[in-house]
Design a protein around this nucleic acid. Structure first.
Lengths: 178, 178
DNA sequence: AACATCTGCTTGCTAATTGCAACCAGTTTC
DNA sequence: GAAACTGGTTGCAATTAGCAAGCAGATGTT
């Protein structure tokens, strides 16, 4: 069921290489790909306009469209027509994208450690990083249930845990502006 | 000694956000930044022309220059004039860059798992991923000794281990082309 | 002293990508 | 039937990437 995308092209094109880090950067090494995946993964967003309007960073709609197409082509997102509607489309994570969770965890942890991030947004990254591989595994299983098996998100899952921590940080920030 | 780069700007600029993943992608989310860091980290390259000519992917020299400047500005690389020469410059990793090792490990592991990478280049990624956090820690300590304390790389360190595995894969590939 | 070579880049140019704003056709709701 | 909502396009300007050539200063060689 979970297989690599395609077999290797034996003649590596000029100016490129088959190095795993390089190939990953060729695919995801741009300003928006991982941010879009982040929103689908952590933000419970699966629709174009949710991803366009709901994001904190304001990606342009043409860029979003181009990223969704690229990620779908690459096998990281799957398009699902919403039952009972002819226009609505859900973008769900594939197994390949779900297995980016450890990458996201490390990226978030590094950013939280070394960049001037916003505290209320950083709490989730820290929580997830502190949770270690166990929490990451639980989270990935939860994502599989949502995005692959199309179950409703559990109330007591990792996603809720992260949301709660974020909400708590927000209200704490409001009552205690220091 | 190891401190975040700057204190947080309280007014987040329009169209951006203080999310750790987003900020990390703002800094490193391009085609070349992490590839350059990979070469310094794993490839024992510290000089402009080594990074320019020695890389597998053939980055353009103006782009390399721009990335080296950006990474230096961001505190991920430090410039050191080579003693006894007035022109030669070594680029060394800073602590912040060394702590990208876990990110590199996860990126490499994901690419090895999901992209059609070259086997001989993938072995290092797998070795490092299988080594777990222990191996990553040993590797980071080795990098600290080389890039922060300017010691010579140990013969029996992680770097050598990875190189050996790569060389072995190369010769095996030559004798057993299948 | 002369010449070639090596050093870390820069320059000029073209092609591709990104960002912005407006807009659109089909679908659903009221 | 009109308004609002769906997932996007389209056209344009600005930025960035890619390519080939070159450059001034430093060093090695004869």
């Amino acid at each position: 069921m979970a297989q690599p995308i395609e077999s290797r092209d034996l003649t590596v094109p000029e100016g490129r290489s088959g190095c795993p880090i390089n190939m990953t950067m060729e695919l995801l090494g741009d300003r928006w790909s991982l941010v879009v995946l982040r929103d689908v993964m952590f933000g419970r967003r699966t629709r174009f306009r949710e991803l366009h309007g709901g994001s904190l960073e304001g990606i342009a709609s043409n860029v979003l469209a181009s990223r969704l197409a690229k990620l779908t082509d690459a096998g990281l997102l799957s398009r699902h027509a919403v039952p009972g509607h002819r226009q609505k489309i859900d973008y769900f994570l594939t197994e390949a994208a779900i297995e980016l969770v450890p990458v996201m965890v490390q990226l978030g942890a590094w950013g939280a450690r070394w960049l001037p991030t916003a505290p209320e947004l950083t709490i989730r990254a820290q929580l997830l990083a502190n949770g270690g591989p166990d929490m990451a595994e639980r989270f990935m299983d939860e994502l599989r249930s949502i995005h692959l098996a199309h179950q409703a998100p559990p109330e007591d899952g990792v996603l809720s845990e992260l949301d709660n921590a974020y909400q708590q940080a927000l209200t704490q920030q409001a009552t205690d502006p220091e």
